[in-house]
Design a binder for these strands. Structure first.
Lengths: 66, 66
DNA sequence: ATATAAAGTAAATAACACTTTACTTTTTGT
DNA sequence: ACAAAAAGTAAAGTGTTATTTACTTTATAT
């Protein structure tokens, strides 16, 4: 699943480590999600949505298949 | 995490099995999610949102802690 | 150019989403 | 009351999300 975390981070001038701290996950988790290695859990997606004050759908992009 | 699946199902007069079929998961998975035993994955949440034509936040309710 | 910060990557492990099978309890209809 | 459908529950197993530690590569600043 694609996401706009890198852009949203850039807008706030945050490093991956900054975002990781804000979301209470490891820096590697942020990196893996940004690189599309795996999808965040729903609670983590909610946390990101609250942090950026955006709906989940405006951060994560589920281009649906079948 | 709370959710409104039971109500949304009722509005369409669907059983847990009907919803499970529509979302391509097992009936037990629907039951467990409805009973709050675990949270759906983000892709499954997106699928439910599409099915009910609602934003994720209108189906799942993450009352945030800390 | 070189030091430093940031980002990328990888392996091992832990935690959780989801499945299958199977059984019990509750609800609904006649 | 009774049968049938729906919902609830549980255990064992699989795959994925997320963690930690640690190392390499890329970007930034002086």
């Amino acid at each position: 699943m694609k996401n706009r975390l890198k852009v949203l981070r850039a807008e706030k001038d945050w490093t991956q480590a900054d975002l990781a701290d804000a979301l209470d996950v490891s820096r590697q988790t942020i990196n893996a999600i940004e690189k599309g290695k795996f999808d965040p859990s729903l609670p983590l997606a909610f946390k990101a949505a609250r942090l950026f004050n955006l709906p989940i759908e405006k951060i994560f992009d589920d281009e649906y298949e079948a």
